[in-house]
Design a protein around this nucleic acid. Structure first.
Ligand SMILES: [Mn+2]
Ligand SMILES: [Mn+2]
Ligand SMILES: [Mn+2]
Ligand SMILES: [Mn+2]
Lengths: 221, 221
DNA sequence: AATAAATTTTAGACAAATCTAAAAAATAAA
DNA sequence: TTTATTTTTTAGATTTGTCTAAAATTTATT
């Protein structure tokens, strides 16, 4: 069948979708930053996506994905996260190594391939970073989670996802033995710099506010 | 790191490699036919591959891959065949469904990915069509094989690879229960049209000369 | 050897995706 | 509410890969 949209267009759709989720509204500069490109290139692409009926766009007035654009974006995200899961679970990559490779694999076009892969992996619900994997209809189940700053002291909880997913933070978490599924509790909060002392497997670890904001956990009640 | 060569260039290198293997020498028209493109486009690309030092080319005089071009082509072939093996063995695709998908997957650039995949699959020696899979140094072991026309009558042999790999022939072979590893023997050769009567699992099957030429087998002695 | 046919290459065009530099519009500051 | 700053868009190029039509070259046929 061949790909329906170019890799470049798919990357734009995905970026816009993510920025929309986080900030509600998206700007040309925002997208340029995310995709390491120039604002002028973004404008060029916005016109093309509009012409392709994937985006609502009026110049100088802003833009957002329409239903079709959102649908396409969700399928790319599904592919990205399923491949990440495959790389970690089957090929034993570390969670901080998989993003770049999935960035390429997500553009493989076969629908049958991705559904077979999903099945082969046992229909996983979340990727190695704890992010939900949309099903083939683009639906996902979101679990209630809070960041570490908002976790009550002495409440045992389980790490469920990571906000910032740069190689840098993943490396830091790796070093401190914080991974998805890790059980931990906050023992002390320091008002001075909002740093936290947390307990992991009977070991005491200190993390900064910046890190705490990016570690999400879930717990009962 | 990103891909070293574009998908398009990789496809040209692979096509030239294959045509070189089969016909010894390759022509512009040949490549155009193989890649479903125009002779003029091929000439354009030959210049680019020459400039990139992957090809020896003098206009009107012919062309062939140099050492580097051959090396790159072999790595693409390695990826193509490993992915095909994955699709059949792990995702349960049929052997006549995998080529198109592998045609995309072969361009994923990560070397580490492909070596991990190789390991995950148990370092297979041949792909689902019986073609040898080059190792990461580009070496492969070729097994001695003959086509069915040259198999002595009453000699039990095992199907080891298929020449023409169009969906059409694979469908026909599927129907007649001829697959890689199938044990068979030629019972009768008809001089009139060079058709053959062969025995497969105690069943008698007739195949044309055209098919027989494309089914390769190996046998002891 | 001269002519015809086939093959290959060039010339010039086009679409996609990107860029720089400059212009236009929107937003913030004085 | 002017003026200054920032953001966004346009104008015009560039690169990559493709195409058609025409020209150049090679190969085959008389
Ligand atoms: Mn991508
Ligand atoms: Mn992820
Ligand atoms: Mn390919
Ligand atoms: Mn194959």
């Amino acid at each position: 069948m061949g790909p329906k949209y170019s890799s470049s267009r798919e990357n734009y759709l995905k970026a816009i979708f993510h920025l929309q989720e986080i900030h509600g509204t998206v700007t040309t500069n925002h997208v340029a930053g995310e995709l390491q490109t120039r604002p002028a290139s973004v404008t060029d692409m916005l016109k093309k996506l509009k012409a392709q009926k994937l985006l609502l766009y009026e110049k100088y007035k802003g833009f957002k994905l329409n239903t079709e654009g959102r649908k396409v974006a969700l399928q790319i995200i599904r592919k990205h996260r399923l491949w990440e899961f495959f790389l970690v679970e089957k090929l034993h990559f570390r969670w901080d190594e998989v993003h770049e490779i999935a960035e390429e694999l997500e553009h493989i076009s076969s629908k049958k391939l991705i559904d077979r892969l999903d099945e082969f992996l046992g229909f996983p619900k979340t990727d190695p970073h704890g992010d939900p994997i949309p099903d083939s209809q683009g639906r996902w189940t979101l679990t209630h989670q809070v960041d570490l700053l908002n976790l009550p002291v002495n409440q045992v909880a389980e790490v469920s996802s990571i906000g910032d997913q740069s190689a840098e933070i993943l490396e830091l978490l790796n070093h401190k033995h914080i991974a998805l599924g890790t059980r931990l509790e906050v023992k002390k909060k320091f008002a001075f710099d909002n740093s936290l002392e947390i307990k992991i497997k009977n070991q005491s670890v200190t993390i900064s506010e910046h890190v705490a904001k990016n570690v999400f956990v879930k717990y009962d009640e």
